[in-house]
């Protein structure tokens, strides 16, 4: 195996584009090294992205934030402004493994590992985050939900890397939240998860919403029917029930070692409802 640590995105792209055999990028390494150790993966080239400033920085942009795809989760959860402005994404980032794992793991790695159970993905989707992809033919901005397309599969082409995320400016009276279910309090992979992002008008009526579910399909789902259950309501009991029903109805999970179809389907609704309640409180500024 060859290990390279370029200091520019272009350098990384050039290495990947020129690679023969299996080339992998190293962000936090918390999935890559585990896969290599288990024998599932034996890359010929590993390109370490953590020495590239564009991938490891965070900066204000258009009232929101541009976050490097390889920025360590612990650096994000210690970033006071980010935590204040991006509560739903913070919820998710805080859940990506132990403190040790978060010391290395990143949102970009979490997304590009393309596990349907990735914690940050539903939160990024609900928050309508855009990913910047850089490749041999330049860069393109794509919605996050178009990156991970199936278990272990991304839409990135040869030589392309995910450079950064743009977290858009949050509208007034809006709030988001992410919840997952795991058997243990920590150190688990989501059995099922839900992210809700909503915006209220001055009268407290929900005018915009986005709901995303994790671990209930081959990729994180966007569930417009669930969002529709909230829009036009005061996110009251009736709306929350409809939200839960729509979330459960959208699930197409599998039975595996971490959960059953029936369990995931039911609890997706439970979590969507609970996440909506938290998001509502955040939108009202009462959390």
């Amino acid at each position: 195996m060859r290990y390279e640590a370029p200091t520019t995105t272009e350098g990384a792209v050039a290495l990947l584009a020129a690679a023969n055999g299996t080339a992998k990028v190293l962000a936090g390494g918390t999935d890559l090294i585990v896969q290599m150790r288990s024998g599932r993966l034996a890359p010929d080239l590993v390109v370490d992205l953590k020495r590239i400033p564009a991938l490891t920085s965070i900066a204000a942009e258009n009232g929101g934030y541009r976050v490097g795809a390889a920025k360590a989760c612990m650096e994000l959860v210690e970033h006071e402004a980010f935590v204040r402005d991006c509560p739903g994404i913070t919820d998710a980032v805080k859940l990506i493994g132990s403190i040790q794992v978060k010391g290395r793991a990143s949102m970009g790695g979490n997304l590009c590992n393309a596990s349907p159970a990735a914690d940050s993905t539903p939160a990024l989707i609900a928050a309508r985050v855009t990913a910047r992809v850089v490749g041999p033919n330049g860069s393109r901005d794509v919605p996050v939900q178009e990156i991970a397309i199936g278990p272990g599969k991304t839409s990135l082409g040869k030589g392309e890397i995910l450079e950064s995320f743009l977290l858009p400016k949050r509208a007034a009276r809006s709030g988001d939240a992410y919840l997952r279910f795991t058997p243990r309090t920590e150190m688990d992979i989501a059995v099922v998860s839900a992210a809700v992002n909503l915006t209220l008008d001055e009268g407290g009526v929900c005018r915009d919403a986005c709901v995303s579910l994790g671990a209930v399909a081959e990729r994180a789902l966007v569930v417009p029917e669930a969002a529709a259950a909230l829009i036009g309501t005061k996110v009251d009991e009736v709306a929350l029930k409809a939200l839960a029903a729509a979330a459960s109805a959208a699930c197409r999970p599998i039975d595996d070692k971490r959960g059953t179809k029936a369990y995931r389907t039911k609890v997706a609704g439970v979590l969507a409802r609970r996440a909506a309640e938290i998001a509502l409180n955040r939108a009202k500024g009462t959390n």
Binding site: A5, G28, I33, V46, D48, K50, I99, Q100, V101, R104
Partner: peptide, 13 residues
């Protein structure tokens, strides 16, 4: 200065 698992860090890094 950051807490990590040595098993999830390449020595070359």
């Amino acid at each position: 200065g950051r807490l990590v698992c040595a098993c999830l860090t390449f020595a070359a890094e």
